[in-house]
Write a protein that binds this DNA or RNA. Structure first.
Length: 633
DNA sequence: TTTAGGG
DNA sequence: CCCTAAA
């Protein structure tokens, strides 16, 4: 799963007048073919606001972003950096410091979570070197509204110009590193590699393996640390400061700014042996301060149904869904003016195929607005939220009609164009199911966003879905939109309904997103069958799959049927001595023990149903046979 | 509404 | 997973 990190750090020397900003771009590509972290170059205006960098800017500072030969800068470079800043009016001067020392002070606009030890430590190293102090202002890129062309900065880059004022705004959290566990092997380590404008600098492949598993940086030599640095950041460093390297690497691995100078053991991109709960508390703080807006947190490692762990996930899913829809699909025209000052010319990533597919589940076809009707779902899922998006046609300056949907972005109402997609699978005969249903629409947007996130992890995120008791909050800014939504939906429903004369049609346009059954679910299913009997799918679902709201009784039935089939195929195959892995090396087979149990249960219940109806076997729970009471499975 | 079974 | 008949 893509790691979504936001502005974890920047280095002043790296960017000079531009700050390297890791945008919160969500990358839902399941395979780490590209780095989810996108650096965005921004310019700092005189008033401290940020504006997205132009292409020229990017090209201009490309080498700054990648070359870190200048990790530990000589003092003389500091002045140069500052001069550069001054020339471009990028920073506000802060002439007086209380202590009279010169510090390059970084000021976080968005969060109070600044001034960490890391930053301070780094800054302290600059105390004697920086003068006069400057104020760096770092804000999230989406708050910049306009693009200023870079002008005439003939900044000669100093080889050692790195007074690295490393700072982490950590709009995201170190939990982002958790996600990396899911696909550690695919985790892109070259954070800048994906941005097409700044990629291609690193030609040699770093040894990523050094970062796998448990990494005790203390045990590494300087050279190894440098290699780890390369693997982490995708660039070389000549720094021989062990402590600095360790901290830097740990920070990069864990995406956390809060890194001890020593004693760090990084395991699976997470600091081990430290108070990891701080992550949670940090997140909580950000939640209180509304900072979560840019964070996306997933705990792929949480197999269980820990409600405590699902809390944040659920919360962040909501945010993630918002952010997902923030992505521009194509055609900047319709929303360019609507984005307002805060969100803007931010370079957008092409939506992934998955995203397009999911998004188009609520799309229009041929200007005929179809609203996906929620598939049959447990009732508690339907109370979540109304659809945040409203089909909406908007014309650009050329008069072209773009099907768009209304969305909120950073509190602003925007129209996001739909993306067409042919329905996968067999075509649906009819799509009107809401005709006789409530006008309320399921929060498909959120669902799809979450699904995109979770799809990769299988059931590792299942517990996210459970938690229907966590109401998906409808942000206050949605008020006006909601009104439009309900009305528009109603009208559209009426139109479509009248257009198609068939009154009684079921199902919607959408197909339920495929969720691979996990071992955990299979076990639950088997247990449920053992307890209630095959056929009592409804009961099994209610009692054993309360946490898996997306599994319907029909799903259970289908899965059980498939399990039965599996017992007739996989089990004998294994006994034949044929390597079962050959059958499908990519898919983890269901453990034979479970299959055997399925087989036993099936046979048992077949007997129970085949013979005299209510046969109770000794030692067997009577409930086991209830399912077979009259019929047979 | 649930279950069973075909697709 | 979808769809539908039947209960």
């Amino acid at each position: 799963m893509a790691n979504v990190r936001v502005l974890s750090s920047y280095t002043v020397d790296d960017s000079h007048d531009t700050l390297v900003n890791k945008s919160e771009e969500n990358d839902f590509e399941k395979k780490g073919t590209s780095d989810p972290v996108v650096y965005q170059l921004v310019r700092v205006e005189g008033d401290g606001t940020l504006v997205p960098a132009t292409e020229d800017d990017v090209l201009k500072f490309e080498h700054f972003l990648h070359n870190e030969k200048d990790d530990l800068p000589p003092i003389e470079d500091v002045g140069h950096v500052e001069e550069f800043f001054n020339n471009d009016c990028m920073l506000l001067k802060k002439p007086d410091l209380e202590d009279g020392s010169s510090k390059l002070e970084t000021v976080e606009v968005h969060t109070q979570k600044l001034g960490t030890d890391l930053e301070e430590n780094r800054l302290q190293s600059l105390d004697d070197s920086l003068s006069p102090p400057s104020e760096c202002r770092v804000i999230h890129s989406q708050h910049s509204d306009k693009l200023l062309p870079e002008q005439g900065d003939n900044v000669t880059r100093q080889d050692n110009a790195s007074t690295e004022t490393t700072k982490s705004t950590v709009l995201n959290d170190s939990c982002g590193a958790e996600k990396d566990k899911a696909d550690a092997c695919s985790r892109p380590v070259c954070d800048t590699s994906t941005d097409p404008s700044v990629s291609g600098v690193n030609s040699s492949m770093p040894d990523f393996s050094i970062l796998r598993g448990e990494v005790c940086l203390d045990d590494l030599t300087i050279r190894e640390l440098q290699e780890a640095f390369i693997a982490t950041f995708g660039r070389q460093t000549t720094v021989k400061d062990k402590i600095w390297l360790k901290r830097r690497i740990t920070m990069g691995l864990t995406n956390s700014y809060d890194v001890p100078s020593s004693g760090c053991v990084v395991k699976d991109y997470k600091i081990v042996g430290r108070d990891t709960k701080k992550d949670i508390s940090d997140m909580d703080e950000r939640a209180k301060t509304g900072l979560r807006a840019t964070s996306l947190v997933i705990y792929p490692g949480n197999e269980g149904d820990s409600p405590s762990s699902s809390y944040y996930q659920s919360e962040d899913q909501q945010d993630s869904s918002k952010r997902v829809k923030r992505v521009q699909i194509h055609n900047d025209e319709p929303q360019g003016n609507l984005l307002g000052e805060q969100c803007t010319n931010k370079r957008t990533r092409k939506p992934t195929k998955r995203y397009i597919e999911e998004l188009s589940d609520i799309e229009t076809h041929d200007s005929t607005v179809k609203i996906s009707s929620p598939a049959k779902r447990p009732a508690h899922d339907e109370v979540l939220m109304k659809l945040r998006v409203t089909p909406f046609n908007e014309a650009d300056s050329l008069g072209t009609i773009y099907p768009t949907r209304k969305d909120t972005l950073g509190g602003f109402s925007v129209h996001v164009p739909y993306v067409s997609r042919m329905r996968r699978g067999r075509p649906r005969k009819d799509f009107i199911s809401f005709a006789d249903k409530e006008p309320s629409v399921e929060p498909k947007g959120i669902q799809t966003a979450v699904e995109m996130i979770l799809a990769k992890d299988g059931d590792k995120g299942n517990h996210l879905w459970k938690a229907p008791e966590v109401p998906l909050k409808v942000s206050s800014e949605k008020g006006h939109i909601e009104a439009v939504d309900s009305k528009g939906v109603r009208n559209l429903q009426a139109k479509v309904y009248s257009a198609v004369a068939k009154p009684k049609i079921k199902r919607g346009l959408t197909r339920k997103h495929h969720r691979a059954w996990t071992l955990c679910e299979v076990v639950k299913l088997v247990d449920g069958v053992a307890r209630f009997g095959a056929g009592k799918w409804s009961e099994i679902r209610k009692l054993s799959f309360a946490s898996y709201s997306y599994r319907t009784s029909v799903d259970l039935k289908d899965k059980w049927r498939n399990l039965i089939r599996a017992t007739k195929t996989q089990l004998p195959a294994q006994k034949d001595g044929a390597c079962p892995r050959k059958i499908n090396p990519c898919i983890i087979p269901i453990p034979p023990s479970i299959l055997l149990r399925v087989k036993e249960l099936n046979e048992l219940q077949l007997q129970g149903g085949g013979f005299t109806a209510p046969v109770k076997f000794s030692g067997q729970d009577s409930k086991v046979l209830q399912g077979k009471g009259s019929g047979f499975l």
